[in-house]
Design a protein around this nucleic acid. Sequence first.
DNA 1: ATGAAAGCGCTAACAG
DNA 2: CTGTTAGCGCTTTCAT
Lengths: 340, 340
Amino acid sequence: MSSIKNGRRPTARDVARVAGVSQPAVSRAFTEGASIAVETRDKVLRAAKELGYRPNLIARSLTTSRSRLVGVAMSYLENPFYPAMLERIAAILADAGYKVLLFTSPPGAPCEPLLEDVLRNRVDALILASASITSRFAEECSRAGVPVVLVNRRTPGHRTSTVTGMNEDGAVVIAERIARAGHRRPAFMAGLENASTSQERERGFLRGLVAAGLPEPLRVVGHFDFERARSAMRALLALPKPPDAVFCANDYMALAALQTLHEESALRPGRDISIIGFDDIPAAAWPSFALSTFSQPYALMAERVVARVLDQLRHPGRPAVEDVVPGSFLQRRSSRPVRA
Amino acid sequence: MSSIKNGRRPTARDVARVAGVSQPAVSRAFTEGASIAVETRDKVLRAAKELGYRPNLIARSLTTSRSRLVGVAMSYLENPFYPAMLERIAAILADAGYKVLLFTSPPGAPCEPLLEDVLRNRVDALILASASITSRFAEECSRAGVPVVLVNRRTPGHRTSTVTGMNEDGAVVIAERIARAGHRRPAFMAGLENASTSQERERGFLRGLVAAGLPEPLRVVGHFDFERARSAMRALLALPKPPDAVFCANDYMALAALQTLHEESALRPGRDISIIGFDDIPAAAWPSFALSTFSQPYALMAERVVARVLDQLRHPGRPAVEDVVPGSFLQRRSSRPVRA
DNA sequence: ATGAAAGCGCTAACAG
DNA sequence: CTGTTAGCGCTTTCAT
């Protein structure tokens, strides 16, 4: 029936032949807003359907030099914050006609190995979540004309747009709350030492504690990892004088801390000790945890980061923007309320 | 310095000119195992580095008609089982030189709208997780020569390879456990009515109950959704004669059930009532939950699905395979142990 | 081992 | 509105 030999997939030329039009006419029939007569288009579409033709987007990318692909680099997918944001990002990009090319790097790995891969694949833009960026990386991308936007990470001194939560200010609020709840021995559980989120939250926490006249916090490192956060919490509990309030650099670690507490200590969270996180992941609101936290609205952050990407795509050369998405403290049962 | 006008990205021709070789020579220099003299290659690589050249994989895809892209369609990313598997799949595919093009569909949406997108993007293969597949979909992909592998879903009667856990047999084991623990009023919480996982687990559960001489279970539907699972659990608890053992079609819903129980009932899980899930997501092992469950090893499933994809890519036309990955029952505290 | 030539499937520019 | 002509940047014969 169809005049296509063996297993080849039909091309625009095949369709053109069947429809009795030129090959570019087929192209126009499949291009939104191209100038083509309705009847011609119908003829083409009919022939296309008959042959099972679908435009080859790879070929289109080559000619237009736009792939409609956005690279998304993400790790720590076991922290529910990230898949939640990823799903939103993918959905919003899809609405804008872009697809997500996923790059997952092993946790804590440098972003450099991505560079080559990303640039060779000719993504139109790059979203870096839970990853830092080196100046060489930023430089090369900018030279290649690939906009880069960081989410939930910041790299000081580089002209890269970012979308973050209120890391520092949120942590200040948390310190205040801890002080006003009457705590005397604060502790901080860091994530990864070189992660800007962890650093900023720690900085804000210190500032807030000092302002409230509290001592410098005890300090452990949980590496944003569940098991290592449990160990870190255990270490705190084993201290001669354990803390009475622990601020964890994210919710995921705070949940680990809470459970270690339940399991291995008689201290009652929200009474004898306060556990506070950062992010407001869905599980934080689960009744078993009722984790007090400072929210980072992932859906909003997803919207903002995509908006930023599209903006940079439309207006190349626009200066980088640091977008701080507002959040708020959520008092739940894992921390002592402030005194009246 | 370099002879490239304005902001264009350097091409193989630019490199060829600088290196004083032909353009195909540049191609060979970047192709593993191509026949090229070492010194020529060095000249090329030097020139390439100087210009900041990177091969354009889109152009390569067009000529080779292989994109080295694998589509991964996934939804329900809020169920930790899926991101965990996604991360593994992406990592293993990356090792094999493939990238992941992500397709996220709204939960419960039909897979049909994906078809067009997937086929136009010329992915080399497609992995469908948490999605069913229609015969037209399978048919079109096979016609286009795009291998499709389903993970954690099965579609009866279609010649599509699948990788699943032991849904039916696992559920039989669960029924036996419930019987041997002395329970008398079992209940089943379904996921989505049209999901094969939910159906198979229900079928196995029924079979196991019958074999053990227990009555048909009460039945509610949680739609694989946290909040709807809570409502479903509430409905069960509000019954004049509530169940004494609830098997939930997956862990995520079982966690919801457990928490609703804690919050809104005096029944103690593991004593007055048993709650059992399916998957063994990381949170199931968390001390707060200690959820009894039947495991689906997501890392192994990821390996198998990628292996299947690569196999079909290497040997097109090989018959479809149904791969059932073994799991086992994990007795934890949320369910009553069998009596001695 | 290397270069010349052709072509992958499409869009863009230009006549008509 | 439509066809003709040229590429996009690469890989692939095929000579040499």
